[in-house]
Amino acid sequence: MKATLKGLFFVLFPLFLGVLSLSIGRFEVDFTVQVQILLSQFLDIEQTWTDMEEAAVIQLRLPRVILAILIGGGLSIAGAAFQGMFANPLVSPDILGVSAGAGFGAALGILLFGHGFSTQIIALITGMLAIGITFLVGGFKKEMPIFMMVLAGVVTSALFQAFISLIKFVADPEEKLPSITYWLMGSLGTASYYDIMIGAPFIIIGMVILLVLRWRINILSLSEEEAKSLGISVAKTRWLVIFAATIITASAVSIAGIIGWVGLIIPHIARMLVGNNNRFVLPVSISIGGSYLLIIDNLARTLTAAEIPLSILTAIVGAPFFAYLLMRTGGGWK
């Protein structure tokens, strides 16, 4: 009973925050009006509000809120899954190079076509390509230990970071360069239903795969031979986890740019709340991560007249918190 209540809380909390967020913004919409507008999408309610208010809530804020929850939750569950699988609390979802890869694709897309559908697709493809290279370098031999994958990911990231720098170097400094730079710092400023249509299916599929495998991730965190001797097919399960985390991160980056820290920090908070069992850590990470990025995004669009890039805020909040965690635990997570 207590567990069910807890579960219900974690499901409802981000939804509640989401509804609340719709009335937050520089253009004021009263909360009760906002709820009416929201309900009118499903029910027949007489319109007592202006079209402008409806447009702000439904066309601008709603897709943004949905994407913030999806991307925050997605990055967090991907981070939790990787931390579990690599048995390393310092791993984040972009450890295998997917963010740098997708970031390069997006920069290239902006340079060639500007923002839009083709840029997102290119980002998705180069994100996958980066993971492919990491696999090739770090996993080509069957007996290679798992940390080789992490090292290969570091190498791949460095390579794609260099490509990103190259594109920035050749980009037109008046127009393209600021656009690329701004985008690489992460933003949901351009969120639309279009983004949801392209990105959400990948993120949701990735989440479902990880949720299905969440208990097995406990077993993957043991030594490879131990995991094998418990009768699970280690290679296949690992591959599935990497695949799921990769499609989540690549589509998150392709929609909203590179958002750091969320996938690293949130799993730690989840573990503080529910213990180390990934059966609970993974779903709770979605809930907290979604809520966290939503709050950060609300701050990003309301703190100043211009939007603040998300990575700046996530780092300002995340880095001190992580430093606190390090000092408190001495680096050893019990």
Binding site: A87, S221, R271, N276, K334
Partner: peptide, 8 residues
């Protein structure tokens, strides 16, 4: 051996 994430 000790593990990175300890379970019950």
């Amino acid at each position: 051996s000790k593990m990175a994430f300890s379970y019950s």
